[in-house]
Design a protein around this nucleic acid. Structure first.
Lengths: 229, 229, 229, 229
DNA sequence: AATGAATGAGCGTTCATTCAT
DNA sequence: TATGAATGAACGCTCATTCAT
């Protein structure tokens, strides 16, 4: 299956020096703390302790916490993007099947502790940190790419912009499950049903939606909320 | 329209109204900081400064930060729940119209700074704080109530459990827009289209989905991903 | 027997106004906290809470903590002095019996929680607070009075000064048991034996000691430690 | 003479000697503050100021105040125990002389500022802190050892338990002088006489006391206070 | 006689950062 | 590479005190 590697480092050539290893260890430890105890608990000291090294040594690799967090973020974003690329480049299925499969993969991914705990954190940080905001946006552009590839096949009538918004809707619908059916969340046991509903509903949506639908249901500040009902 | 009051305080029937006012001021200031600078920046000192009072005086009203945060959370949750109740008890529309209207209201609400900045924070805190987790769960139970009321009318064939999961799917789809089309988010300008897509797609979903659909598309660990395709 | 009242207030005439009562309540609560949790835990707020009144009201009676502590100290010292006076004025026994009885009374008193917990506190505070130091000195002058009364009868040969130092030795020997055989202390179960040893040893001491003994055993910086041994 | 070193540190075999020195400096400063201003004044900030370093640097060596206090206590207890061991292992004198000498040494020790100010503090803290209570108990077990060694020689008829209680009585009698004849205490000038009285009285006690005495003078709850008088 | 409100200082603790070795 | 030492700022919290009502 499409396993999500924890971290994908921009490896500086193939040389795995001791420093590279250490740097990775530090990021891994940081990620563990982030997932297990939250961003609030992510301190340089705690990372050092988790690595079994001294605080001074952490600062040798990451002079500031900001640097460390950015590197961590880039690594983790890259690991997700690699996965999305792998899914996208899998040529084996018919478009409908591929669409449904991707929805399932994503819904299953949000049930991992990593995704359930990481993404809300990223959304939160995005609100006050433009660097993170940009990385997260990048990530989602990449994540939606597969939908942007498939939708024109499933529904050729949509304009580029309509198609992009539909892709956003599909992606956001899935992401919205994170807080409810993610790792150890109350609705996690119902994920099979959720997958069924999401697959049917979103596939139907992308296949049948028309510009007319979109604009009929879209609000018009001058007219009534539902024009034709 | 259904305005969302910032905070809904449990009225202390204060004989001394000054204290009541101060307590509210403090929570308002805390909320402002939370929205503008994030939970990380929410310190007792900063709240005091924002109120123009001393740190000691903040602790006079909220002896611990935990108490303050809990009171803030309960106030803010209550303010949302009051709004949901108001929407639910509005008897003026046909079920389909009501369904579509609620979806629009919610999508418009996520475009407020308050909702865009607050909810990801709550989702994040929920992952490591059971008190917050429980309050947020309560809030969403309440938020889904209107869907749980409407769906049986729009689609009587669903069992209670299926209906609840469909309501979850609808609610989560909307929530998932927060990070993408919320306040000052990249897709905010496309919210009218998003509303159109969401309204059409989710209405279609709740009206037409069948148990057969749900289980046909639901994964079967033994069989192929798409049984009937 | 000779019960030790907890506090002896210098009651302002016989009028037990509400204020008098409140003031006493406050001191009683303060004493409870002091005995149960130590001087470190003795705060105005805690006293208020223990009394079920507000902090502001405590400061109405005792504008400063220092005042409160001083009043508490004077009350508690007075209560002990009253007891000593009662013992001293008891005319029923022969001098030897009276001496032995007093030793026992004092040894039994140090087994009360009040005395075990209060006196080390007083000794400690005495080291850095001259007001307390003076009150405690007063208390012990009073406590030794009975020995100063009895010793001349039991041993008329001693000079006044010698007698006073002997009385001090007797009193201090007893006080020294507080930390070892006081309330819930390891040697508390052996108090009967300790009483026997103290009674025998101290009675023998006061009856038989001579100036010659005192100065023979007293150190002489020029000569050997034990001159005549 | 038997000098009492201020602190006996557990040598950390520090490769970095600077840290070891700092750690000692901190404990020395803490002890100074404790002796000069009392436990109430012993704050991390004050210790830092006394050392001429920052608060953060104190916490570098002692992450919590509790740790610092415990280390200080263990050091100071060890320094006393070393002294007691030295006295005990001095083989030069006859038992009676040794007994008298030890009494004098202890009485002279209580006249030091360190002992006069430290021990009442320890007794006080013992009442509400089991860790301190245990260390202090240990210390006194060690302090009484020399009496437990000498008394069987001076008075072989006593049972083990009787001897231990007699040793306690002797030790406690001496400790009881601390508050009256210690450093800058009113009776300090009379210490020579006190030494004479204590030496004569306690030596006489341990040499002549019998089980019969102990139990004759010991209270009997059913009979009169003085059975045979 | 009592309350509620507010201040200002101090506390123990945590932390990111800097730097000499 | 890595450690140990140190700084300075912030944090949540407790407290004695003051004062208007």
């Amino acid at each position: 299956m499409y396993s999500m590697p924890r971290l994908k480092l921009r490896s500086n050539s193939g040389s795995y020096s001791k420093g590279q290893t250490r740097a990775t260890e530090i990021l891994e430890a940081a990620l563990d703390i982030l997932l297990d105890h939250g961003y609030q608990s992510l301190s340089m000291r705690r990372i050092a302790a988790a690595c079994g090294i001294t605080l001074g040594n952490v600062t040798y690799y990451y002079p500031t916490k900001d640097q460390l967090v950015r590197d961590l973020l880039e690594s983790v974003v890259q690991s997700y993007m690699d996965t999305f690329d792998a899914i996208r480049n899998d040529p084996t299925m018919a478009p409908e099947d591929q669409f449904v499969t991707v929805i399932r993969l994503l819904l299953e991914d949000i049930q991992t502790k990593k995704t359930t705990h990481l993404f809300p954190q990223l959304w939160t940080l995005s609100n006050h940190d433009s660097f993170i905001s940009e990385r997260v946006d990048e990530l989602y552009v990449n994540a939606r790419q597969i939908f942007n590839d498939l939708i024109p096949i499933l529904n050729p009538a949509l304009t580029d912009h309509e198609r992009e918004v539909v892709a956003l809707f599909v992606s956001a619908s899935i992401e919205g499950m994170t807080m409810f059916a993610g790792y150890e969340k109350p609705w996690a046991p119902d994920m099979p049903l959720i997958e069924g509903i999401a697959a049917k509903s979103l596939l139907e949506c992308v296949k049948t939606i028309t510009a007319d639908d979109i604009y009929r249901f879209a609000p018009d500040r001058k007219g009534p909320v539902l024009r034709n009902s």
